[in-house]
Simulated assay, not measured.
Amino acid sequence: MLATTLEDIRRITFREMPDPVIQHPTDAIVKVIASCICGSDLWPYRGDNGPVAQPRTIGHECLGEIVEVGPEVRDFRVGDTVVVPFDHCDNTCAHCLAGNQQACVNYDMTTSGQGELSRVAQADGSLVRIEKPAASELPDLLALSDVFPTGYHAAYSAGVTRGSTAVVVGDGAVGLLGVLSAKILGAERIIAMSRHESRQKLARTFGATDIVAARGEEGEAAVLDMTEGIGADAVLECVGTGAAMVTAFNVVRPGATVGFVGVPHGVELPVGTMFKKNARLAGGLAPVRRHLPDLLPLVLDGTVNPGLVFDSTLPMSQSAEGYRQMDEREAIKVFLTPGA
């Protein structure tokens, strides 16, 4: 198959790689019909995860059409169109039943979502069947594979409730969909921390009532001023840096929760602030399969349009250009279509 491949730091190619094969009887192979680049893909692309030991496929967000199933797959057939959660699970183990599908004892992850084919472990527990979508529906449905449930997980973990005030730290695709998720959960006031005009505009479209363009102490002071010195009832940390985490705890009100979903890089928790405030930290890797039953109907009936985060579309063969666009913040999130 042809697949987007990370060859070295800041070097992406689209070339032939071995086709994925059925490794376990619970596996399925899907033909990718829509894909995208995730902000977390930029960490290995930039070298923040260390050197690239050998070329590997990259990409973990996709929609697919099943082309092969293992002998123990009961609920899906060849030809089914499916949402592929990036974190695969059996959905029956003790962790899954407790709502922690991201910690499934049979956990696996999509590894060639930006290629022609991808293997899904634990197909019955992971996949969600959908009707064959029109081209115009693909962006909203694709967002369900990771970025929308991840933004939702930040809001859910932070304890956003009806009538509350929420602050979203980070204006990437996850942060923007955190804004949308806070709106879904009923937040009355949503403060988006964003320095970029195009992202501020989309944040308002998704439900942000206020924008804070400053960062660091200046931004924190602005949020506290807006909340009469009290702080926010819930804070969504959607970046994954130490500075973002410090800001999140500096603006959360005492006794409240920071929901974090940004992949941590160089983060040291501000334990002193947490201790003084009795502030909590919750979240982490999103259990996508847990949240899909709540989010899929909202997409299917047009209540929400998470696909608006895609502001650049390229053929998969030009994925290297997509990485450049996102790395240089020319694009929020790049949608990839199959082929050349």
Results as ranks from 00 to 15, higher is better:
150 T>R: 03
301 D>M: 13
202 L>K: 02
173 A>Q: 05
197 E>Q: 11
252 V>I: 13
225 D>Y: 00
173 A>Y: 04
240 G>Q: 07
149 P>K: 05
199 R>H: 11
101 Q>H: 14
256 A>L: 08
99 G>V: 06
61 E>R: 05
139 P>S: 08
118 S>Y: 07
75 D>S: 12
38 C>A: 13
187 A>E: 01
130 I>L: 09
266 G>E: 07
284 G>C: 11
18 P>C: 08
289 R>Y: 04
280 R>V: 04
190 I>T: 06
334 V>N: 02
12 I>S: 07
64 G>V: 03
335 F>K: 09
217 E>S: 15
234 A>L: 06
262 G>H: 03
239 V>R: 00
54 Q>F: 14
261 V>M: 08
261 V>E: 00
298 L>C: 08
10 R>T: 00
240 G>L: 06
214 A>D: 15
143 A>T: 08
70 G>L: 07
115 G>K: 07
97 L>T: 12
307 G>T: 01
142 L>R: 03
68 E>Y: 01
186 G>R: 01
268 E>H: 14
271 V>I: 14
165 T>Y: 04
289 R>A: 14
175 G>M: 11
28 A>D: 08
109 M>Y: 13
205 T>M: 12
296 L>M: 11
110 T>F: 05
207 G>S: 04
148 F>W: 11
13 T>V: 14
257 T>M: 12
340 A>G: 14
116 E>Q: 15
313 T>N: 08
258 V>P: 01
50 G>T: 03
212 V>F: 02
37 I>M: 10
266 G>T: 00
42 L>G: 03
207 G>F: 03
180 L>H: 04
103 A>S: 13
327 D>S: 12
52 V>F: 12
257 T>F: 09
7 E>K: 14
65 E>C: 06
339 G>S: 12
203 A>D: 10
145 S>V: 09
332 I>A: 05
110 T>P: 00
30 V>Y: 04
36 C>T: 14
143 A>C: 11
169 V>W: 04
181 S>N: 07
198 S>T: 13
207 G>L: 02
186 G>C: 09
129 R>P: 12
136 S>W: 09
335 F>H: 11
230 I>P: 10
43 W>T: 00
95 H>M: 10
196 H>V: 15
302 G>P: 03
195 R>N: 14
251 V>L: 10
7 E>W: 09
294 D>M: 13
62 C>W: 06
253 R>W: 03
67 V>G: 10
119 R>N: 10
172 G>T: 04
53 A>T: 03
105 V>A: 00
158 A>P: 01
17 M>F: 05
61 E>V: 05
94 A>S: 14
